[in-house]
Design a protein around this nucleic acid. Sequence first.
DNA 1: CAGTGGTCTAGACCACATG
DNA 2: ATGTGGTCTAGACCACTGG
Lengths: 239, 239
Amino acid sequence: MSPWQRIYQLLHQDILSGEFKRGARLPSERQLCERFGVTRMTVRRALGALQSEGLVTARKGTGVFVRGAPSTYQITDGRRFIDSIKVHGARITTQTLSITVERASARHAEPLGLRRNAEIILVKRLRLIDEQPTFLNYKRLPSALFPRFEEIYGERQSIHDVYCHHGIVNYRRTETRISGGFASEEEADALSLAPGAPLLYSSHLNEDNSGSIIEFSCGCWQLTAIEFVFPGASSRETE
Amino acid sequence: MSPWQRIYQLLHQDILSGEFKRGARLPSERQLCERFGVTRMTVRRALGALQSEGLVTARKGTGVFVRGAPSTYQITDGRRFIDSIKVHGARITTQTLSITVERASARHAEPLGLRRNAEIILVKRLRLIDEQPTFLNYKRLPSALFPRFEEIYGERQSIHDVYCHHGIVNYRRTETRISGGFASEEEADALSLAPGAPLLYSSHLNEDNSGSIIEFSCGCWQLTAIEFVFPGASSRETE
DNA sequence: CAGTGGTCTAGACCACATG
DNA sequence: ATGTGGTCTAGACCACTGG
């Protein structure tokens, strides 16, 4: 095993075992060099692996901090976010990062069933699980359907409330997509990850009783922080 | 933009534009150093990013080869693998890597509804899409249900055939899970990726008409090579 | 200001693959 | 034997952060 892998494993172990607690600062790279008798490049290689796993976050000019083992949360389709996670006893909080209005691009007009340049409300939110930024979520809603959105949403930061306020009490998720990718600057910043860190992307559409699409939601997760669980399909199949 | 990012973008562009075709060898690291006027470390940083994206594969002692842009395939739950992919006009082939018998560990006994140490048939397969290794799949089936498995499977390399041969004509997927992780040696080797490359994991259970679990299937994909599409759920929800 | 992580240079040795 | 990628050393300068 190469030196950087040895260092990686030691640090990995120390984080999982709680030797380095969540939020704690690791020894500086130069200190680790001395301790292990290697150069910075070797230490940085190990730290890089820890970073892409999301165990650790580097802050320029400050240090490397333990993000804590990314407890894998199960999220079950067909349930509300809160319900899926809360069973594990984790504490969930929501930060609304911004509420803006944008014009529908082709990419968003089509799924929402709008014409190009229609007004769309864009809500950027960050879900924290046990104080750890875990899910960056963008919701897009047709502006025409939700007048006074900001005012109503602001009361309890709940999209559900906005739906109810406009008489939408029943709705369903029509399609869910899962894919993978790499963190942009914005995504990395929000999730306290390094740009380029691997992510899981999820997106879905919400449809009201009449079949109109009322929301397009998409978001990203640190790669190993989440497991999606979907109930069975009805049709038979081979794969 | 830092030098390594500039090099990364140039190579990225050249691969997507077809300047470097699939299967082609990139200039050696030392040649790239000369061309860009930087040291190997800088070139390697750029190549490393391309590798974790799966655009490129390094073979020790040989060179760096273009894997081709990982065309994103959609796989739709509730359909046979072949049907989900074939619509895009891609050519799918299957390699059976091995067929072995193992004793059920706790991890596999439970989902399959077996007792510990029961015999399980383990089939390792590799799916190639347009000649590119794309999906590494492990299937586990209760040995007791499928006598003469190897013989029947061998005829056409089809699990479906084995099911039919034992009178199972109807079955359904009971649960699908999606998660993320990093490639082990074995996974990286099979998919022509570097160990530690980010992956998408998928798994599901198959259940026959009587409700018995007849298969536990799990596998991995290069992170950006696949998009999973799931039909809508029936219940209402907020997230 | 001193210390941190981010980046880069200019070498070196190794194991591996190919001719 | 040569060239390849994989790894490592021993420095260096930068931008940023905090006291």
